[in-house]
């Protein structure tokens, strides 16, 4: 017996029972039947045809008007059948695409540092979460032989796959810069030339690049159109804006970037983030910078990693677990 014949027999049984006993049991069986035919990928016009065959079997004296009316129903359902089959194919295509994106997302993950360098006198924490599977945020934290720390945080405008492709370009461009740690301003100027040559006119990248010298406790930084961070002054228990003037990368070839310096005392910290953090929103209400500062303050007695993790968790919850943009939050605190 073919699947089709099996289904027809089941349908005949259900219909017969219903017509003779008219009870909810048969309707329940019909509902289960519909699940089965969907599983078997039987299209709607086939169900109409089964129905007609079965009813002709059960009532051989069906009026010719009734029988003919099924031709109209069949004709109408053919269109649904075509749409149904197209839907099946598109669904499979979507699964394929999704698994491709999973592979790409895994690849992309390897672009980020595997672990955060540990320092003798400073504590660093970072969290980076893409809005969908792939991220347009990039960060890197490296330490050289002199405990000198370099921090990069870039945000590609847009999100998803296009932003992720651009993000990989930033990663390779950074890798191809000279080994010795450049000063933040120089580094951005050099990176900007590469980005400008390789990026579409409608795309750009904002970035914050910083270095921290543990010998002098000087935090030097430059910015390319990036969301300002925070500098927390422990002696005054105050959050100040960490702003760096500069054009976003990829806009103009010969942009120069000014370098700023901030001396860190014990307990002071700096916070850098992508605009996915400040674009957190609940309904129409965006997160305000002051609220972000308060959130950080709430957890400030914890380790740097715990602070960023907790802030992320609260914001994730606050916006009903819907990230609107890639989210990266990084904190460096001087401990001794």
């Amino acid at each position: 017996m073919t699947t089709y014949e099996g289904l027809r027999d089941s349908y005949k049984q259900i219909l017969y029972n219903f017509l003779h006993h008219k009870n909810e049991q048969s309707l329940y069986e019909a509902q289960q039947f519909s699940k089965r035919v969907i599983e078997e990928q039987i299209s709607p016009e086939e169900i109409v045809s089964i129905h007609l065959e079965v009813i002709e079997d059960l009532y051989p004296n069906l009026s010719s008007e009734t029988r003919k009316s099924f031709e109209i129903l069949l004709e109408v359902m053919i269109g649904y059948g075509m749409a149904y089959r197209e839907h099946q194919i598109l669904k499979n295509k979507q699964l394929e695409l999704e698994s491709e994106i999973d592979v790409a997302a895994n690849m992309q993950h390897t672009f980020l540092p595997k672990e955060i360098p540990q320092l003798a006198d400073a504590d660093i924490g970072v969290i980076s979460v893409p809005a969908s599977k792939m991220s347009g945020d990039y960060y890197n934290i490296v330490k050289d032989g002199n405990e000198y720390i370099a921090i990069a945080l870039a945000d590609i405008i847009g999100k998803g796959v296009p932003a992720a492709l651009c993000m990989s370009m930033i990663k390779y461009a950074m890798d191809s810069l000279p080994e010795q740690l450049l000063q933040p301003g120089q580094l951005l100027a050099s990176l900007n030339r590469t980005v400008e040559q390789n990026i579409a006119a409608n795309m750009f990248v904002t970035m914050m690049y910083a270095s921290y010298d543990p010998a002098t406790h000087i935090f030097s930084y430059s910015g390319a159109g990036h969301e300002p961070g925070f500098y927390y002054d422990a002696s005054e228990d105050r959050f100040n804006e960490l702003y760096a003037k500069g054009l976003a990368l990829g806009i103009s070839r010969d942009t120069q970037y000014r370098e700023y310096q901030q001396s860190l005392s014990v307990g002071d910290f700096v916070v850098l983030f992508s605009d996915g953090v400040t674009e957190c929103r609940n309904g129409d209400r965006f997160l305000e910078r002051g609220e972000l500062a308060e959130l950080i303050r709430k957890y400030q007695d914890k380790t740097a990693q715990e602070i960023v993790d907790n802030v992320y968790r609260e914001l994730e919850n606050w916006q009903d677990f819907q990230l609107h943009d890639d989210f990266t939050l990084l904190l460096l605190r001087r401990e001794v």
Partner: peptide, 11 residues
């Protein structure tokens, strides 16, 4: 051809 196939061919 069955009535379903007739309808498919016609469509």
């Amino acid at each position: 051809f069955s009535s379903v196939d007739q309808a498919r061919i016609t469509t």
